[in-house]
């Protein structure tokens, strides 16, 4: 059934593509990567706040997916499955490196804000990016998963290992902080 997915992969769901990939279809993997990688990379970028680490983690995540593809249970929603693997890789990496997500300067202190960070945001997108970056990690992650990656509250709760109520609360509090940040931006423009 999955062998002909290669020819009609554009219509297939990501779960069907994963099935075809498990059955050995390289074309299905290409299409799967095209659809999933941008969301995953955006998630990792916001999680690490560091492009190189996000790139490393993207590679590690896909390597894990490749090795574990035989244990993917048919019918499991794929994006939460992949995001959970990515998140665990991030936590493992952070634990083993025992470093904070901020980069230290050569003398071991926290870096000064870049010039662009001290300036007013150029537009609403920029303001939103900065407001998201300023949120506490738990709120930022909850908003990233539900609002940007498009997961349901239940799926986000699965990825984060939290209850649905906790995720709703984090999103709600994150929204409240975003609103404050953006009001400041609107007052200045």
């Amino acid at each position: 059934m999955n062998s002909d997915l290669g020819t009609r992969s554009a219509d297939a769901s990501v779960e069907e593509l994963m099935d075809a990939y498990v059955d050995g279809s390289a074309r299905a993997f290409d299409e799967l990567y095209r659809r999933v990688a941008p969301n995953l990379f955006a998630y990792l970028l916001r999680l690490t706040r560091n492009r190189e680490r996000a790139e490393d983690l993207l590679q590690i995540t896909f390597s894990k997916i490749h090795r574990a593809r035989s244990s993917y249970l048919r019918g499991a929603p794929l994006l939460p499955w992949i995001l959970a693997i990515a998140r665990r890789s991030f936590l493992d990496e952070r634990r083993s490196a025992s470093t904070r997500s901020e980069e230290l300067s050569s003398d071991g202190t926290l870096p000064e804000p870049r010039a662009s960070e001290a300036e007013l945001p150029a537009d609403l997108s920029d303001a939103l990016e900065r407001a998201l970056d300023n949120l506490p990690e738990a709120y930022r992650e909850a908003i990233q998963l539900t609002k940007i990656a498009g997961l349901s509250i239940a799926e986000a709760a699965g990825v984060l290992g939290a209850t649905e109520t906790a995720v709703k609360l984090r999103v709600h509090r994150g929204y409240a902080q975003l609103r404050k940040h953006l009001e400041t931006f609107h007052r200045h423009t």
């Binding site: 050995g24 993997f29 941008p38 990379f41 896909f62 035989s70 939103l128 940007i148 953006l182």
Partner: peptide, 29 residues
Amino acid sequence: LPWPKPVAPPAELSASIRKSCTEDIQSRR
């Protein structure tokens, strides 16, 4: 709000991942 869009990974990295995940790929059900 103009929520951030998904970000395409660098082409070189994508090519490397694609290669390592599809080279000699076989069914592994």
